[in-house]
């Protein structure tokens, strides 16, 4: 399985990452190695297997519909890179 440079750049864009030329060469090689290794699953006898969805057999975890307040709202804003009043501050979206 080989991955093209355009494909890698498309994937990086989807992942919100910017790659420099060194990284592009390195990751192309790494992806190819790993995907080639991953081809062993082609031979796995999985015809009668369904997909595993989630780790446990329990289908859902229900909770009572009760509000519980988080008691450290200040702590949330203290670690934000930029805030104003009780809001996170981001660059202007609509020019």
């Amino acid at each position: 399985m080989s991955v093209s440079k355009d494909e890698l750049l498309h994937i990086a864009k989807l992942a919100n990452l910017k790659l420099n030329d060194n990284e592009i060469d390195k990751y192309l090689k790494n992806l190819e190695d790993i995907l080639n290794y991953a081809e062993v699953i082609e031979n796995a006898p999985i015809d009668d297997c369904t997909e595993t969805i989630g780790a446990n057999d329990n289908a859902n975890a229900f909770r009572s519909d009760i509000v519980s307040e988080f008691d450290n709202i200040d702590g949330i804003f203290e670690i934000a890179p930029s805030t104003e009043r009780n809001m996170f501050k981001i660059p202007k979206v609509i020019q």
């Binding site: 494909e7 994937i11 699953i41 297997c49």
Partner: peptide, 29 residues
């Protein structure tokens, strides 16, 4: 970054069935 890229790749359109879906079946196996 390498793992985010690999993960994004196996979940992306065109490769989801070949990798992720199949891997979830192998997990059952």
């Amino acid at each position: 970054k390498r793992r985010i890229i690999l993960g994004t790749y196996v979940l992306s359109s065109g490769y989801y069935d070949a990798y992720y879906k199949k891997a979830q079946k192998v997990r059952t196996f």
